[in-house]
Amino acid sequence: MTEGVVRVGNSVRRPAKESSEFVAALLKVFEHQGFDGAPRYHGQADGMDILSYLPGDVPARFQLWTDEQVAAAGRLLRSMHDATRGSELAGRSQIVCHRDAAPNNAVFVDGLDGLPVAFIDFDGASPGSPLEDLGYACWTWCVASKRGDQVERQADQVRILADAYGLQGPERGVLVDAIIEQQARNARFWAELEASGTASAGPDAIAQSIAWSRRELAFVVVNREVFEAALA
Rank of each mutant, 00 (worst) to 15 (best):
P59H: 14
F22S: 01
G111K: 05
A16E: 11
R159Q: 15
I206C: 11
I50H: 07
I95M: 05
E18G: 13
P39S: 10
Q44V: 13
D149R: 14
G166M: 09
P130L: 11
Y41P: 07
A155W: 04
G128H: 10
A191F: 05
S87A: 11
D82N: 15
M80C: 10
I160Y: 03
Y136N: 07
L112N: 03
I50R: 07
G128K: 05
S209Y: 13
L193W: 11
Q44H: 14
A106S: 13
Q183G: 01
S145M: 04
V29G: 05
L112A: 04
D100R: 04
E194Y: 09
G91T: 09
F22V: 04
R214F: 08
V70P: 01
L231A: 13
Q63S: 10
D82C: 15
K146A: 10
P170W: 11
D46I: 06
N104H: 13
L27Q: 04
R224M: 07
V226C: 05
W190R: 02
V109T: 14
R215F: 14
E18N: 12
Q33N: 09
A201P: 00
P103R: 03
H81K: 14
R99W: 04
A71T: 08
R40L: 10
D149V: 14
A162T: 13
F189A: 06
I180D: 00
F108I: 03
D100C: 03
Q94H: 08
Q154S: 11
K146Q: 04
A25I: 06
A83P: 12
S93C: 09
V96D: 00
G114Q: 06
L76P: 04
L54P: 06
I50F: 05
A195N: 06
M1E: 13
R215S: 15
E216I: 05
I179Q: 00
N186M: 13
R188C: 10
M48E: 12
A125V: 10
T140S: 02
A164L: 12
R85N: 13
A118C: 06
W190F: 13
D163N: 15
E68W: 00
D100I: 05
G34Y: 08
P170R: 06
R172A: 11
S19A: 15
L193M: 12
R159C: 11
F189P: 00
F219N: 03
A199F: 10
A73C: 12
D123G: 08
F227L: 08
V96N: 01
A184H: 09
V96C: 03
V107F: 02
V174W: 01
P170N: 00
E171C: 09
E3Q: 15
E68I: 02
V8F: 02
